[in-house]
Design a binder for these strands. Structure first.
Lengths: 250, 250
DNA sequence: CGAAACGTTGATAAGTTTCAACCATCGTGG
DNA sequence: CCACGATGGTTGAAACTTATCAACGTTTCG
């Protein structure tokens, strides 16, 4: 699957291409400078590579600038659960930063551009710009909300509802970032990823996807997902639109 | 099921009975005063009552002082997923504070004593004591870690593993708070709660519990859970002890 | 050309849910 | 005081959803 080249993160945050999107909040003067100082460097990662290994503590803190990634954890016999997907603007490595117990891994789904923060810059940022601390808590709470949704999905929705949920969820997140075009988005997931995100087997995921295609609700072709009937998908998943909110961006 | 009377939260944080536990971090001077000022009042809630309604925005921020509660969300037809359990020291209402989308509800499992914070005190706290902001982020990230675990459980563990996981998880959390006595803890959950937390049906939950009892791994009697074979439970759940960490307390 | 990755499909097996009872305990009101 | 309803737990049987197994097709790439 050929990846489109990912735009590289500019060396200075003032030139940040992400911040131009309408989806993100404005920052008070000075805060952007502080972020720029807290940043160690920018880098890129290859699709399929492991950015943060499971149970690895003291990793670095990242902002995903472009591309897709996901958080996951696995059991010893190989069963894997994808916890949530990470899209541009998402913070990665926060739990590792807090030295938390049994932390998840992070793997890149596509080639990605990343902002890397200095190892000890987080506390500095809180101290000098409490507003940024507030924003980071917001991001953490928001991500937890995503995981909450995924837990409801894995625990209480059936296979058809789960798949509908995932497709719609991803479409909406991309759309909010301005990355949807005419009802379709880039879609780098394999069916194995979908299965691992939903707690289903690969085979059953395949059959369920085909069922939705057969119902005319979506298609996945050439690495793009097209949502053909958002209303029907929303009804199946019981997942209705929320008013878009501005996201903090670090 | 008779509830033991819950100790009431003292009117001044300096007399906080929770903070005496070895499980919580020390606070820098001044921070405790700030918390005390940010606190609106203390209150109690009855077992079974709804503290935060689903999709309710702008609720208040609470610290659970004593008792058990849980976060949940439901589908329209009544299917309910318990997202995680809340124990003394846990913060409640943080996501609502950020006006987050489709927020969960919070229901009390036992009579509870609560600290209630003033509506707009959170930002104040961040501004005056960035360290507390840091701690709150820590708590949020830590809670997300719990939800991550629960998602792995619901998505990838079978029924026996799920139940073993839950029993052990709750035992360990209580133990860390100093609330375990001789291998047993207070246990106010019904089998319906367990089922809703694990994404299982009530009947299958019952049969799985009986299976574990029959294996001699645990008992639940008179509202107490006794862990009879922690090693075996850990092996089944593939859930091993993490070094205990000090928790921030707000 | 062959291997590897990903998707598709049918048949069978297993795990889980649903349905339908029944029991025990407990609090309450007649 | 006892009858009663409500709540929570237990159990067997049948139905259904999902997993597993096995095979095959397509595309890509070295």
């Amino acid at each position: 699957m050929p990846q489109p080249p990912q735009p590289r993160c500019p060396p200075n945050c003032h030139a940040c291409g992400l911040r131009d999107f309408a989806a993100f909040t404005e920052l008070p003067a000075g805060a952007l400078d502080a972020i720029n100082r807290a940043r160690s460097h920018t880098t890129v990662g290859r699709a399929g590579s492991t950015l943060i290994r499971e149970n690895q503590a003291n990793s670095q803190l990242y902002t995903l600038y472009s591309g897709w990634a996901f958080r996951y954890s696995t059991l010893k016999d190989g069963r894997r659960q994808i916890l949530n997907f990470l899209l541009p603007g998402d913070l990665m490595g926060l739990q590792q930063e807090f030295g938390d117990d049994a932390a998840h891994g992070v793997e890149l789904l596509t080639d990605c551009a990343l902002c890397v923060f200095k190892g000890d810059s987080l506390w500095e940022l809180y101290r000098e710009h409490p507003r940024l601390g507030y924003d980071i808590t917001w991001l953490a709470a928001h991500e937890e909300g995503n995981v909450d949704d995924n837990l409801l999905t894995a625990g209480r929705r059936n296979a058809l509802e789960r798949v509908a949920m995932l497709l719609l969820q991803l479409y909406r997140r991309l759309d909010r970032l301005g990355l949807a075009e005419g009802g379709s988005i880039e879609f780098p997931l394999t069916q194995q990823h979908i299965a691992d995100a939903l707690g289903l087997s690969l085979v059953h995921t395949n059959k369920t996807l085909r069922r939705l295609v057969h119902l005319g609700l979506h298609t996945i072709e050439d690495g793009r997902l097209s949502i053909l009937n958002p209303r029907a998908l929303a009804r199946i998943a019981e997942y209705y639109d929320q008013p878009p909110r501005l996201l903090p961006l670090l």
